[in-house]
Computed example of a mutant assay.
Amino acid sequence: MSETPEVPAVAGASGGRRTRSPAGTVRLAEVAAIAGVSEATVSRVLNRKYGVSASTREQVERALQQIGYERPVKGEIVLILVPGLKTPVFAAMVTAIESELTPHGLRAFVCPVVPGSVIERDYIEPMLDAGIAAAVFLSASNTLRNADPMARQLLEGRGIPYVSVNGGFPEGATPVVSTDDWRAAELAVSHLYDLGHRRIGMCAGPVGNTPADRRVEGFLEAMDARGLSDAEDFVVRHHYSVDGGRHAADELLPLGVTAIVASSDDMALGAIRAATRRGLEVPKDLSVIGYDDSYLLDFTDPPLTTVRQPVESLAETSVRTLVTMIQNRGVQAGEVLIDPELRLRQSTGPAPR
């Protein structure tokens, strides 16, 4: 017995043109013969399962087109709710997720949103009847404390699976895939401490943002583990932006910090701007570490040392989990933490004497 329902039939018409026939059906064997693959492979393609190369999947799709079978759009769309694509790390994550979805016959529908706003609902509500397969909350309302729950509830009410990236909903019992932000802070503090820095400040993201809160927790734990007291006095919370980093650094520099850990690369670049406006040189007078990473950081002045989010691993793990849920197979609820990586460039150096 085949693994998948039979494909709608097409019958040969005059002149060799194929047209749909409501009377019969095309079996897996016919599609497999045209594509030059096994029936099991055809079944895997139709059911969006792993184990089929991109080229083989294309062969099967072409065979389906040849017999006149058109894949319905319904059930192929995956919404990606993301706070815009101007930030390089979000653009990279969306691209990586799209790349992982494609081999499964799934198509990404990118939804730029203000996290936690009604815009999330405005995207989800009209798409529900289109038969979306799933959704990904990518640093959207899943990262905010006390966010409007309507977007999540709309999906749950229709039984549509979703995965959260970089923070989960406290009320939700679905999988979460995140960068280990506590580990990220430890990597940054450890690097600066080894360079001789003892007065280390932090330009942190806004209060109530899950990744920002976690990075602050990790920063305080890392400082405490090294006997550096009163670290709370060297944490300034602001927006994830160049201006946010500049304003935060303007508060930290008068405190005599010799190094700054930033919650994003934009904030780190803002901190460097604040330092240079005061006549300080980076890294001679002040070391700065960012967070996220992008190839563009090789071209900043100076090139920015940063903690890199594992974009490819986040995308692969998220999509693998999502496809399993789409196939109505069980997944383990809870959060998977993926280790970040310290990328050394030229914005950090020995502590000034």
Results as ranks from 00 to 15, higher is better:
R44E: 12
R48E: 01
R17T: 02
R20E: 05
R48W: 02
P22W: 09
S21M: 06
V37N: 11
G16W: 06
R18P: 00
R57K: 04
V26L: 14
P22L: 05
T41G: 03
A33F: 14
P5C: 15
E30H: 09
G12Y: 15
A29N: 09
G24C: 14
A9R: 13
A32P: 15
G51A: 13
R18S: 00
P22N: 13
T41Y: 02
V52S: 04
G16V: 05
I34A: 01
E39R: 14
A32W: 03
A29I: 11
S14A: 14
T56H: 12
P22Q: 10
P8W: 07
R27C: 13
E39H: 00
N47I: 04
P22C: 11
S38Y: 02
R18I: 05
A35E: 00
N47M: 11
A32E: 10
R57E: 03
S53N: 05
G24F: 12
G16T: 03
S14E: 09
Y50C: 11
E6Q: 13
G36Y: 01
A32Q: 09
R57M: 08
S53V: 02
G24Y: 07
T56N: 07
K49S: 09
R44W: 02
R57F: 02
E6L: 10
S21V: 05
R18M: 00
S21Q: 07
G24H: 07
R18K: 07
S14C: 12
S43E: 04
T25I: 15
P8E: 12
N47C: 10
V31H: 11
T56Y: 01
V52I: 12
G51E: 08
N47P: 15
E6W: 13
V42G: 00
T41N: 00
S55C: 07
R18L: 08
R20F: 03
A54S: 08
G51R: 15
R27Y: 05
G36E: 03
R57L: 03
G36S: 06
A9T: 10
I34G: 03
V45G: 04
G24V: 09
A13Y: 09
K49Q: 12
P8F: 02
S38W: 02
R57Y: 03
G12D: 12
P22V: 14
A54I: 05
T19L: 11
T25G: 14
A32M: 07
A11V: 14
N47K: 08
V45N: 01
V52L: 08
S38L: 07
S53T: 12
E6K: 15
V52R: 00
V42R: 00
S43A: 04
G16N: 10
E6F: 14
A40R: 10
G36C: 05
S55D: 09
G16R: 08
N47L: 09
S43Y: 01
S55Y: 07
V31Q: 04
T56D: 05
T41F: 01
A32D: 12
A54G: 05
A32N: 06
V37W: 02
S43D: 09
P8K: 11
T56L: 10
A11G: 06
A9K: 12
A35H: 01
R17W: 03
L46P: 02
